[in-house]
Write a protein that binds this DNA or RNA. Structure first.
Lengths: 215, 215
DNA sequence: GGTACCATCTGAACGTCGTCAAGATAGGGG
DNA sequence: CCCCTATCTTGACGACGTTCAGATGGTACC
């Protein structure tokens, strides 16, 4: 391995095929959907042979896992940005992270769908450790925020992981339903998805707040 | 059309191929997952030729839509049962429907996944009207329950469709995260999914309740 | 009771896909 | 200068989705 150590991921024959393949996959997913994602089309778009991807990914699922990992990393960044932009209240931070979550899902639907398409479950955690780690990064942020809110007495006590799961479920469900076109279908437009996200975050925030708090 | 009118869906050469195909598809989905679902395998399992399904379904997606429709109808029944078993409080009814929703998802993961795999969005509403109607049936029940709770003064005012969407999002998110194995992974077991569902329903119920209510 | 009809099903084919094995290519280390 | 190894290509195999012309078999009508 001559330069695979000195220069880890550059100066391939192609340039950096692995990254290019992932980018092409995302492009296809965004334009034509998951059904149109074909390893052969990915290779075609990058300009390599149909077998070339197999030197960077074990199979088709592996490239999807890479897209999912990419998505989870971007999600964590988006949530960090949301947290940074929020005020100083612990519940305000939770709400901001929830809104950022939904906004990410809406802005990167292809990534989001792949992230939760069940790859993480089908392939063991060991098989795709990076994906799992990236997912844990986001959940860890949420967990921290819940613990902080509990310490501040802003939300109820109890297993923080459970409360974090509830918060996550709220925004995840809204994002999923919106992506399936069901959030604005049934009874006319319910408002922008950003407003809906804010409303949902507000609802779960109230649901978890400690009793006795004034409004 | 000799008997297609008198006896709408029986006495085919096979018996009732359409229903048998759907059942076989569900069986495959439950045992081996969506990736293993093949029209050829479905036909094989039923004992007909590979082209036979095309006389009952336009393409592979159509049979998936049929499975989804089936799932939505069963979901509506499950939610009706949950509502019937609940007490008389309007918020108790909402919670019971939420718990029933999650229980359905956990007990019929294959159906549930197909129901929200994006078929409803990809194919237009006109293309698969029955699916859409079945989905609306469940959402309609939820909407009724929200309106009733509002009339009773148990939950806040505002667009009932929006509040119904929030409730739906809560339990939908929990169900989805659980199905992806993420609900009980991060921080050890958080309790049975039924308990989690009850907790989530309680949280959103509190989040939407009118202020001033005692505990 | 025979016959024509039409829904239903079969057999074979086409193009594409995921994947693999064996060989070509290229660029740095000896 | 040659070799070595990572990288990529060529060619192939089996399976899949889908289509089409034709076989099959029950129902209705005469």
């Amino acid at each position: 391995m001559p330069r695979a150590k000195s220069i880890p991921k550059r100066a391939y024959h192609h340039g950096d095929l692995r990254v290019a393949l992932i980018a092409a996959a995302v492009q296809i997913l965004e334009k034509d959907g998951e059904a149109a994602l074909t390893l052969r089309e990915v290779a075609r778009r990058v300009g390599v042979s149909q077998a070339a991807p197999y030197h960077h990914f074990a199979d088709k699922e592996a490239i999807l896992a890479a897209v999912g990992e990419d998505g989870f990393n971007h999600l964590a960044v988006a949530m960090e940005d949301g947290r940074a932009a929020a005020g100083r209240g612990t519940r305000a931070i939770l709400r901001a992270m929830g809104v950022a979550y939904v906004r990410f899902a809406v802005r990167h639907p292809s990534h989001f769908r792949v992230m939760f398409s069940g790859i993480l479950q089908k392939r063991g955690v060991k098989e795709c450790g990076p994906l799992h780690a990236a997912a844990q990064r986001s959940f860890g942020m949420l967990l921290e925020a819940v613990v902080a809110a509990q310490k501040a007495g802003a939300i109820v006590e109890g297993n923080p992981a459970k409360l974090a799961l509830f918060s996550w479920s709220m925004v995840h469900g809204l994002a999923m339903l919106h992506l399936n076109g069901v959030a604005d279908g049934p009874a006319g437009p319910l408002g922008s998805i950003d407003d809906l996200a804010a409303g949902a975050a507000e609802a779960i925030s109230r649901g978890l707040e400690t009793r006795g708090t004034r409004s």
